[in-house]
């Protein structure tokens, strides 16, 4: 099978996200997914299209005993980790309710409202653009390349690549917040082309209220908190849309 064909990648990505693949075919596809950027993008696109359909599925809260059992089986490590910021527990606890809903209905429950409500629907309902942070990053020739936007109190950053960026194999495009004072800090990874979203560590309001500039650097891998950028290949203003 030629996995370089965009039509085939799109078809397989759709089946993967929809869940119609058999376990054997899914495992084979997941191997490709680990190394193929095009496949990763196709899956992300289909997740964005199909995941919102799960909004009709009510979340189901798991029994308290479920979490207790998980804690016992992880040797109490989860509870210890909770004390540190950005812990796995912080991630996994809301996911428990989500996952339990999945089990009950085999749909994917709404996770982050601002991630799944299309922005045009918000605009239609309010007749105004929502309060948001917006960044427009340009290259050395002042060509607009990245449009980054996030609602003021949301944690989802939406990225639209206005033109393709050539990224060396194995490298990633890292988006940075550049505060007026203090060191730059990483926000997330953006794709070389197309659209994507990622979850930020906190709300836009908390992260970006004192950030007048954004930058993108090419890194070996998504960086951790505390890291510093190599060299910015794209930069631009970050403005408040209200």
């Amino acid at each position: 099978m030629n996995y370089n064909k965009p039509e085939l990648i799109d078809k397989l990505a759709a089946e993967y996200v929809l869940g119609t693949m058999s376990a054997r075919v899914r495992r084979r596809f997941q191997k490709i997914l680990r190394t193929s950027l095009a496949t990763q993008r196709a899956v992300q696109d289909w997740e964005q299209r199909l995941t919102p359909l799960a909004r009709a599925v009510p979340a189901v809260k798991p029994r308290a005993a479920t979490w207790d059992a998980i804690e016992r089986r992880t040797g109490g490590a989860a509870r210890t980790a909770e004390k540190s910021s950005g812990s796995f527990l912080g991630l996994i606890k809301p996911a428990l309710g989500v996952a339990f809903g999945v089990l009950a209905t085999l749909g994917v429950v709404r996770l982050f409202p601002d991630a799944v409500i299309p922005i045009d629907k918000i605009v239609q309902s309010r007749s105004t653009l929502p309060e948001s942070y917006v960044g427009l990053l340009t290259d050395a020739n002042n060509n607009p390349v990245v449009l980054a936007s996030s609602t003021r109190h949301g944690k989802t950053m939406s990225i639209k690549m206005l033109r393709k960026v050539d990224v060396p194999a194995g490298k990633v495009l890292q988006l940075w917040a550049i505060p007026a004072e203090g060191a730059a800090f990483p926000l997330g990874v953006v794709p070389a082309e197309g659209k994507s979203t990622f979850q930020m560590a906190d709300t836009s309001e908390k992260l970006l209220s004192k950030v007048p500039r954004l930058g993108v650097s090419i890194e070996d891998a998504p960086v951790q908190t505390g890291a510093q950028p190599s060299t910015y290949v794209l930069t631009g203003n970050c403005v408040k849309l209200w």
Binding site: V43, E47, L91, A95, V98, L111, V172, T197, Q199, P222
Partner: peptide, 10 residues
Amino acid sequence: ALSQPMTCLT
């Protein structure tokens, strides 16, 4: 780089 944490978990 493959997916968001919550998407991955789900």
